[in-house]
């Protein structure tokens, strides 16, 4: 199977922040969710993948092309990108945006763009600055999908949108991956958006990639138990992968095989897993 994204030992340092030795792959046809708190390095990763930033070390290949290769500029014709804001010039109308992008992308599809505008009921003669945030993001997504992309890269594209709009947008992602040659990299700090959508989950924490693996395998590996102080003390310290305490008991993350028979274990949700893992890190 081909890989849509291949990242090896990618490193980038800024004053006060380092994205450290990032290695992951996104197989073709899959959706990878990049999770992490604000400032964890998600946007830096995406900028490196778009070659808007130059890595200090390591390599990144997108759709089979090294991002440092001068040919990568042309490969971007097959990548649809949506950032946390739409970033279109304020005075442009949706129709003008379409005309500009028609000349920018080699495979621009007027009909597709038109169809998305209709589907989202976006007025095509209204200035971009007069759109609501939801409309702006829908326009950005319509633009990203209208040049026959094989890979979608989304950086916090659903942040700050109401649940109804998010739902409409997530629908588009499912439609997009109906084609097995289409892949998505989506970063978000809203984990519930990614819980069902993603095939793979990568968790960035303070510039380090804590894991990147198949979501189901990940959720199968861990268990959550709710228990009291006594039972907690009985557990070996090395078994505890994450913990959240309150005066009345604690919530502990364990590997499924480490759960003692005396305790009832629950399957974690992705959100709970991530929270407990990052708390475990804080406890160390």
């Amino acid at each position: 199977m081909k890989n849509a994204i291949e990242v090896r030992n990618l490193t980038k340092s800024f004053p006060g922040f380092t994205l450290n030795d990032l290695t992951f792959t996104l197989p073709e046809g899959a959706i990878l969710g990049l999770i992490g708190e604000n400032g964890a390095g998600k946007s830096t990763t995406i900028k490196l993948l778009l070659h808007a930033l130059e890595a200090d070390n390591g390599s990144a290949k997108v759709l089979g092309c090294d991002v440092k290769d001068p040919a990568y500029s042309a490969v971007k014709n097959r990548i649809g990108v949506v950032l946390d804001e739409a970033y279109f010039p304020e005075v442009l109308t949706a129709r003008q945006v379409g005309k500009v992008l028609r000349h920018a992308y080699s495979d621009w599809q007027d009909a597709d763009y038109e169809a998305y505008l209709n589907r989202f009921s976006l007025p095509d003669d209204k200035m971009f600055r007069d759109y609501s945030r939801g409309m702006k993001m829908k326009l950005a997504i319509a633009a990203a999908l209208s040049h026959k992309p094989q890979l979608l890269i989304l950086d916090e594209a659903t942040a700050g949108l109401d649940p109804l709009v998010r739902d409409e947008i997530v629908d588009l992602f499912y439609e997009f991956t109906r084609d097995p040659s289409h892949s998505i990299l989506i970063s978000s700090h809203i984990i519930s958006d990614l819980e069902k959508l993603c095939d793979y989950v990568a968790f960035l924490h303070k510039g380090n990639l804590l894991f990147c693996e198949e979501k189901d395998a990940l959720l199968d590996r861990y268990c959550v138990v709710h228990t009291d102080e006594a039972a907690l003390r009985a557990l070996p310290n090395s078994a505890i992968k994450g913990i959240r305490k309150n005066p009345y008991g604690s919530e502990i993350l364990l590997y499924a095989e480490d759960v003692p028979a005396s305790l009832t274990a629950e399957r974690p949700t992705l959100e709970n897993l991530i929270l407990l893992l990052s708390k475990g890190d804080a406890a160390k």
């Binding site: 959706i31 629908d171 499912y174 991956t177 189901d216």
Partner: peptide, 17 residues
């Protein structure tokens, strides 16, 4: 697999499994 994943709004790998 991909049609079911889309209709159920779940991941492709989950369905494949």
């Amino acid at each position: 697999i991909r049609a079911l994943a889309k209709d159920l709004r779940i991941s492709v790998i989950t369905t494949k499994r």
